[in-house]
């Protein structure tokens, strides 16, 4: 499968972002989910994607690690074109094995946690480092225990996901993604499936991660988190970026009516 790339004069820009999304298009059948979306995420910053359901924000996130294919445009992470090999004006989709290699550097956290139910918390974390990255077992275990400690679950290494609360599962999922030493972390509504009293623990872990300088792209409805942690807020609706900027600008002084309407509805 091949797609047509847009001719983009800014390809050789000197300012290098960790993530560059340029004029990405994506349709599901006749429904166009992303219409020429462009976005840059500088290294070490937190970007929050905001918008009503169906606005394309989750799809955009899933395109960044090629869980969804794109129809046009390009996504570049750390200087590498994601999912495609470019030749001239066409981009050819990579083999599953090549894509898997690219995904190692990109961690992802899902709304429904998606922990492996047949493995304990520790086994969930060490599976990919041992099986994919080839880390020695002892080393992987030590590292996994450190990660569990970091998300406040040092005593839960031997628990199966079914024995953990939603908030605990989500924190194990974050530890699992971190175990591959990603340079970028994607969060797809990480607190939407949680009971309200469990949301805080997960957000605390994410805040901590941001403070340590992890580059993060977060789809969330937690305005408080976005205001406190985000360097950039991107409001999407109908498959386009409606407005973006510093959180204080977007939240306190939105320029577009659609942004204002949305912010009023979630407040």
């Amino acid at each position: 499968m091949s797609i047509t790339l847009p001719v983009d004069p800014s390809t050789t820009t000197s300012h290098r972002s960790l993530v560059e999304i340029r004029r990405v298009r994506k349709s599901f059948g006749a429904h166009q989910v992303l219409r020429d979306v462009s976005l840059a995420v500088p290294a070490g910053t937190v970007t929050v994607l905001l918008g009503p359901s169906g606005s394309g924000k989750s799809t955009l996130l899933r395109c960044i690690n090629h869980l969804e294919t794109i129809d046009g445009g390009r996504i570049i992470v750390d200087g590498e074109l994601i999912g495609y090999r470019q030749s001239g004006h066409n981009a050819h989709e990579m083999t599953p094995r090549q894509i898997a290699r690219q995904r190692r550097g990109i961690g992802m956290v899902f709304q429904r946690f998606n922990l492996f139910p047949h493995m304990t918390a520790l086994e969930n974390i060490i599976e990919a480092p041992i099986g994919i990255a080839g880390l020695p077992r002892a080393q992987a275990r030590t590292r996994a225990k450190q990660l569990l400690d970091r998300v406040g679950l040092a005593d839960f290494a031997a628990h199966y996901p079914a024995q953990l609360s939603g908030g605990q599962q989500q924190r194990v999922a974050i530890a699992r993604a971190l175990a591959m030493d990603p340079k970028l972390m994607l969060f797809d509504e990480p607190t939407s499936a949680l009971d309200p009293e469990l949301v805080g623990d997960v957000l605390d872990v994410m805040r901590e991660l941001a403070k340590e300088g992890m580059t993060m792209i977060v789809v969330t409805h937690e305005i408080g988190f976005a205001r406190g942690v985000a360097d950039q807020v991107v409001f999407m609706d109908g498959g386009v970026v409606v407005e973006s900027g510093r959180p204080e600008h977007v939240f306190d002084d939105p320029q577009r009516q659609r942004t204002r309407n949305f912010l009023e509805s979630v407040r």
């Binding site: 998606n114 492996f116 047949h118 099986g131």
Partner: peptide, 29 residues
């Protein structure tokens, strides 16, 4: 669940590895 495949892929697992270590053990049940 389809989410299992996505979680495995997002960790950099190949389709075959995902089948062997993540999907098959759950299907076996």
């Amino acid at each position: 669940d389809e989410g299992q495949r996505e979680a495995a892929y997002s960790l950099g697992m190949s389709p075959l590895y995902t089948f062997r270590r993540v999907l098959l053990p759950q299907a076996m049940r």
